[in-house]
């Protein structure tokens, strides 16, 4: 464990909590991509199946269970409890378009982590500030993992190509979002809209 990985995981946790509370408190999932949350649930389920096969640490097990439970809880908030507020018109991302590059680059098994909210922002041109904070922490989690891999490469002299390549791909998707976040959300009025 190093500081990058710990803060990355905590940012991931903060992102999940922000999204859950936003939906819960506002009783609305407007502006949230239900499809991406389903993909998160699928990704966590497939990635964390090793919960049943190998024990790594209490920390690892607890975090995996928390991520899994919160992913399914968020999906149920969107599709069951607050279904009427779900903006399915804007959630028009074609999952099959994601599956094609994923199949082609199947060694990048983390590819489905790419959040479709980023696509929804480009589609609707705006995002509520709370949603951008969620995306910011999600992006920070991926970015901090880059620091973690540099750390592990130097300290442990090991390197996991699949994790690093897929992690870099995921982080690249956040770059333009980070730019907009800092130039508009932090300095501006709070709402993020594209020019």
């Amino acid at each position: 464990m190093n500081i990058f990985r710990l803060s990355g995981d905590l940012c991931h946790l903060v992102a999940i909590i922000i999204l859950f509370l936003k939906i819960w408190k506002s009783k609305s999932c407007a502006g949230i991509s239900g499809k991406s949350q389903v993909l998160f649930a699928v990704v966590f389920t497939t990635r964390y199946l090793d919960l049943f096969t190998s024990f790594i640490s209490i920390y690892n097990t607890v975090m995996k269970v928390v991520y899994l439970a919160s992913a399914y809880a968020t999906v149920s908030l969107i599709y069951l409890r607050f279904r009427s507020t779900f903006d399915s018109e804007s959630d028009s991302f074609r999952v099959e378009f994601l599956l094609v590059p994923v199949a082609g680059l199947s060694f990048l098994e983390n590819y489905a982590f790419t959040p479709l909210e980023l696509f929804m922002i480009t589609k609707t041109g705006e995002a509520a500030s709370i949603t951008t904070h969620y995306l910011f922490f999600l992006g920070l989690y991926r970015a901090l993992y880059l620091g973690n891999w540099l750390w592990r490469y130097h300290v442990e002299e090991f390197f996991d190509q699949i994790a690093v390549v897929s992690g870099v791909v995921q982080t690249i998707f956040y770059c333009d979002f980070f730019y907009l976040y800092f130039t508009r959300v932090i300095r501006g009025s709070g709402k993020m809209s594209l020019p």
Binding site: R5, D9, H12, D50, S54, I56, S57, N60, M63, K64, Y67, Y145, N148, R152, E156, E157, F158, F159, D160, Q161, I162, A163
Partner: peptide, 10 residues
């Protein structure tokens, strides 16, 4: 450089 799997990561 040795290859490893970071199974402990989240």
């Amino acid at each position: 450089l040795q290859s490893a799997t970071y199974k402990d990561e989240l």
